[in-house]
């Protein structure tokens, strides 16, 4: 199977699982304990989420720059750009509008 060039092992999946558990426990723990102020907690949630997505892509979907076909990575990058423009753009426009209406 070409896609499993880096033939995964139990260790690959277990590493991903443990990393994902840690990256889930951090934001949940912070929110439940209320240790940090809200804005700082939000940033930690977002950073942990982004790292966890990368962990899943690496250890569960076996993406890497060496063996994943280039067109798959290009499709992922293209989707990421579209998502960034559409989500970022929607939120920017709507919250700007909200501020103008309320202000």
């Amino acid at each position: 199977m070409q896609t499993l060039r880096h033939a995964p092992t139990h260790r690959t999946y277990l590493t991903g699982f443990v990393l994902a558990l840690i990256l889930t426990a951090i934001p949940f723990g912070l929110v439940l304990s209320g240790l940090l102020p809200a804005t700082a907690t939000l940033s930690v949630i977002m950073i942990a989420a982004i790292i966890q997505v990368l962990v899943h892509l690496t250890f569960f979907l076996h993406l890497n720059f060496a063996s994943t076909p280039r067109e798959n990575l290009l499709a992922l990058a293209f989707a990421a750009i579209l998502i960034f423009i559409m989500v970022g753009g929607s939120i920017w426009i709507m919250f700007d509008l909200h501020m103008r209406m309320m202000g």
Partner: peptide
Amino acid sequence: EFGFWLYLMSDAIIFALLFATYVV
């Protein structure tokens, strides 16, 4: 695999729009 990957990416865009709607 590439064809399925393209489907997953388009599905990710559907979810992204639902997320944008939710945040708004």
